[in-house]
Design a protein around this nucleic acid. Structure first.
Lengths: 176, 176
DNA sequence: TGACAGATACACAAATTTGAATAAAAACTT
DNA sequence: AAGTTTTTATTCAAATTTGTGTATCTGTCA
């Protein structure tokens, strides 16, 4: 989808890379936590955008590696799509909303157990993100990448707050 | 994906429906704000699960309509997958994270303008969700569906809070 | 009544995503 | 140095998602 294309173009802004390295960088930025960056998606996207002239294939002989270099058209496309990502509010796809939708289909006991277990996991995940931010995410990620971690943590915190409230309401029979 | 399947199975728990009506219900629950529920996804998912024995096709003659009825295997699958949605924390796919990742590629002026415009839109969206909850979402949606709206609002609020903070930091040159 | 907008109902090609498989090169082990 | 594991690098079929196209039905207003 559009997001994947922005990510690929964005990674290639500062110089050509091959598919595997592209994926490495995205993983370093934690993109696997909020985007579709499986290898198949990467290689498909690179190939497609090369066909469309947004990227240029640079063969590298050695062991079949192919470098992809962004073209001028690619840079223009990147900026346009990046702008639309800033200006347009697009749906946040969240599997937990599916769980919520059918909370009435679990027994109160199962529901409470699931909520408590989830709360524990969420606290752990949030704490881990906090430590990652402290540790400056080490590697070679630019400073503003921390912001994605912060936002991610805030989203998980929103979910945790909802759950902590909901546990009480389920206990008092106010939910579902 | 797995979430779509849970949604389809869940909608069919209380009786057979045809594809269009399935989509109507999901839209009524606001699922288009946090899941992939385009018509193509619905019809494909229904057909596939029918082939797999999770649903049973019931022809209805009139104008080519096909009703889908959940099977016992389908109910089992629903419960199993619903549980996994409660117990496992799966990535929240958020296009705005892509925007954040490349905030350093916009001029400070463009960035500030985009953030301010987005903040306005977010406040409007959050208020609209609030009103939808007040209005009990009218139609025929069960009461606990409000919770999905609340969680959605909380996620948008988390984003708004981040932006309000970030506008200041960009202004002071602390970001990016 | 008939014409036309809108709602109902589905189908389909193209694009994307998933998940696993493959194979070569590098690093380690004994 | 031969064997084993790990990392690098890509490919592929199958599943899913998107976006749009088509046909039928229903209400309504002149």
């Amino acid at each position: 989808m559009s997001s994947t294309r922005v990510l690929l173009l964005g990674v290639l802004l500062d110089g050509p890379l091959h598919g595997y390295e592209v994926r490495r960088r995205l993983e370093m930025w934690g993109a696997d936590a909020w985007a579709n960056v499986a290898y198949g998606s990467i290689y498909h996207g690179l190939g497609k955008m090369a066909d469309e002239g947004l990227l240029h294939r640079v063969e590298e002989g050695k062991g079949g590696r192919t470098l992809y270099e962004i073209t001028e058209a690619g840079r223009a496309e990147f900026l346009a799509r990046l702008m639309s990502h800033w200006w347009e509010i697009k749906p946040i796809v969240d599997p937990f909303q599916v769980a919520l939708t059918f909370m009435d289909r679990l027994s109160p006991a199962d529901l409470t157990a699931a909520m408590k277990a989830r709360a524990v996991q969420l606290r752990a995940a949030i704490e881990m993100l906090g430590r990652a931010i402290e540790a400056k995410r080490g590697h070679g990620a630019p400073r503003h990448i921390d912001e994605t971690l912060r936002l991610n943590a805030a989203q998980l915190q929103a979910q945790l707050t909802w759950i902590e409230d909901a546990v009480g309401r389920v206990g008092r029979g106010e939910l579902p």
